[in-house]
Simulated scan of single mutants.
Amino acid sequence: MTTYNVTVDETPLQFGLSGIEEIKQNIRTIIKTIMGTCPMRRDFGIDPIVIDMPTPAAAALLEVAALSAIEEYETRVQVTDIVVNIDENRLIPVVYFALREEE
């Protein structure tokens, strides 16, 4: 089983992606979207409660919220790990995953 990873950063949205690059972009989009901001899909994204938490607590909550959201909205992957790096009070999640069809 091949393991991939994606860093949730400021990579710009690209159109026309396919395969693993499309999946990575979808994961970035899921985690960068604040729940309630997507019209017609208000439950999409991450709960905004993480925003106002102290950094260590926010990192832990972000891991849980990201795992839950990815499992719901990107069903082609199985998340194997999520590491939240802290850079000057900025949370930078790295998601490790495998494709479900490769299991």
Rank of each mutant, 00 (worst) to 15 (best):
I51N: 00
T80N: 06
I20H: 06
I70F: 11
T80Q: 06
F15W: 06
Y73R: 03
F15V: 14
G19F: 07
I92Y: 02
I27H: 07
I82A: 03
Y4P: 14
L13H: 08
T29N: 12
P56I: 03
M1H: 00
I30W: 10
V8A: 01
N85M: 09
D47R: 02
D43K: 06
I92H: 05
F44P: 12
Q14T: 15
Y73F: 14
V84P: 15
I46E: 01
P39T: 11
E88H: 05
G16D: 09
R76A: 10
R76V: 12
I49E: 06
G16N: 03
V79R: 04
T2L: 01
E22F: 14
F97L: 10
T80C: 07
E21R: 03
V94K: 01
S18W: 10
I82F: 04
L99D: 10
G45L: 13
M40A: 00
D81H: 13
E74K: 00
I30P: 12
V6W: 01
I92A: 01
R76I: 10
I20M: 09
V95H: 00
D87W: 00
E22L: 14
R28P: 15
V8D: 06
T11N: 06
T33S: 14
T75K: 12
V79M: 12
T7R: 05
I51C: 00
N85L: 05
A66K: 02
P56R: 02
R42W: 15
M35C: 02
D87R: 09
M53C: 08
P48V: 14
A98E: 14
E88S: 06
A59F: 07
L61Y: 13
A66I: 09
T55C: 03
A65C: 09
T55V: 06
D81M: 09
I34C: 05
K32P: 15
L13K: 04
L17P: 10
I23D: 00
N5Q: 09
V8P: 13
I23Y: 04
S18Y: 12
A57H: 03
V84F: 13
A65E: 13
I86N: 12
V79H: 04
Y96Q: 11
G36V: 15
Q25K: 10
I46C: 00
I49W: 02
A98D: 14
A98V: 15
S68N: 10
D52W: 12
Q14Y: 03
V79Q: 07
V79E: 10
V6F: 07
M35P: 02
L91F: 03
T80G: 12
P48H: 08
L99A: 05
R76E: 10
R100W: 03
I30C: 01
D47K: 02
R41E: 14
A69I: 10
K32V: 14
V8Y: 06
R100H: 07
R41W: 15
V95R: 02
G19N: 08
M40I: 09
V94R: 01
K24V: 15
A58T: 13
G45H: 13
P12N: 06
D47E: 13
D47Y: 04
Y73I: 00
V95C: 04
Q78N: 15
E102T: 11
V95T: 08
V6R: 00
V95Q: 03
R41F: 14
G16S: 13
I34F: 05
E74M: 02
L61C: 04
V8C: 11
E103M: 08
S68I: 01
S68D: 06
S68C: 02
I92N: 07
T3D: 12
D43Q: 08
Y96W: 04
